[in-house]
Write a protein that binds this DNA or RNA. Structure first.
Lengths: 191, 191
DNA sequence: GTCTATATACCGATAGAC
DNA sequence: GTCTATCGGTATATAGAC
């Protein structure tokens, strides 16, 4: 296989394992096994484990950006787009119950490790934060758009944490519905 | 020193290190260094690392129970007690910015590790959940007391995650104040 | 570009002297 | 009850054959 293909394969496998097992708990042997290459071959593509993490974070940012573009095309209204974001916790219910939010759990882990990639991980949050802010601005809430965006982010993270702790789908759906209703109430304040 | 004293010293040091560095990232050498004993001496008091974790979780539960009792004595009204809980995110601002919520980050880590102590860690959440439920019941909301308790837990966890990501104290205070106002609004529905 | 073999370090855990 | 010394396993990372 060509270098680019193998590299991408490594990033994809590492992405999933970092999410499901955590960054530190995932060894090169784990990733190599998932990709189907030897441990030694690893270092042709990445010098260190931190380099793989950086590549994974970059890939996540690119993927989320594509996702946001798609949502913007699919949903006609700002409120609909925000609700689409909130519904991640239901669409990815099973994964979130088992492994939490990919963004939240990564920042939490990297913060404790004092890892240099912490800021890059936070940038994934910022991507959503800015996008949500734009939607609230379009909703006529330019003055406190960022505050409202942060509120949605925080509420979603809270749902993800409790979902992981209790595996209670009724809770998840109830909270998501409440948050969506809150969004619509914010839209009503527009006039 | 006597066995009990050393054991307690170990649990206290492990508690702090597990919180600040994470469970897996903390080695016996780290804890031994913090306590001031040799690595070998460890195994006189605990057979395995998992045993230390179990002891740390048990200690956290006992400590939180004492804390809830104290809040119940200090605060006269159910709403005041719930607000006291919410204000943890402000009282422990600095630690939460750096290391997140001790309960939320532990359950998140143990879930990813597939660790057997996951249920014990969730029990710390349940302690707060039940207590908050009692307060909402006293507030005249017996029918959905547990739902409301879960909402407060989720909101607090969300604040903690975003606080760790952005270190934004204005955000933390704003969200805490909003949640407190929400509690008071729930109380108003009592009649 | 991928492999095997290996260097080096640290991990959790054990054995035995004191 | 605490220590030193050490075992076996695994981690990241490297060297060199193919």
């Amino acid at each position: 296989m060509d270098a680019k293909g193998t590299r991408e394969h490594i990033v994809r496998a590492a992405d999933e394992l970092f999410y499901k097992q955590g960054f530190e708990h995932t060894s090169f042997a784990d990733v190599a096994g998932a990709v189907g290459i030897s441990r030694g071959n690893f270092y042709y593509h990445f010098k260190t484990k931190d380099d793989i993490l950086a590549a994974v974070i970059a890939a996540r940012i690119a993927e989320r950006r594509r996702m946001l573009d798609q949502w913007e095309a699919e949903q006609d209204t700002p409120a609909g787009r925000i609700r689409r974001y909130i519904n991640i916790v239901i669409a990815n219910e099973t994964d979130i119950e088992d492994y939490g939010c990919p963004v939240g759990t990564l920042t939490t882990e990297l913060a404790k490790l004092g890892h240099g990639c912490m800021d890059s991980a936070t940038a994934i949050f910022t991507l959503f934060r800015s996008w949500l802010g734009e939607q609230f601005t379009a909703l006529g809430r330019a003055d406190d758009a960022d505050d409202l965006a942060m509120h949605v982010l925080a509420a979603s993270q809270g749902i993800a944490v409790m979902s992981q702790a209790y595996h209670d789908r009724e809770f998840t759906r109830r909270e998501a519905a409440q948050l969506c209703a809150w969004v619509d109430a914010q839209a009503a304040k527009e006039e």
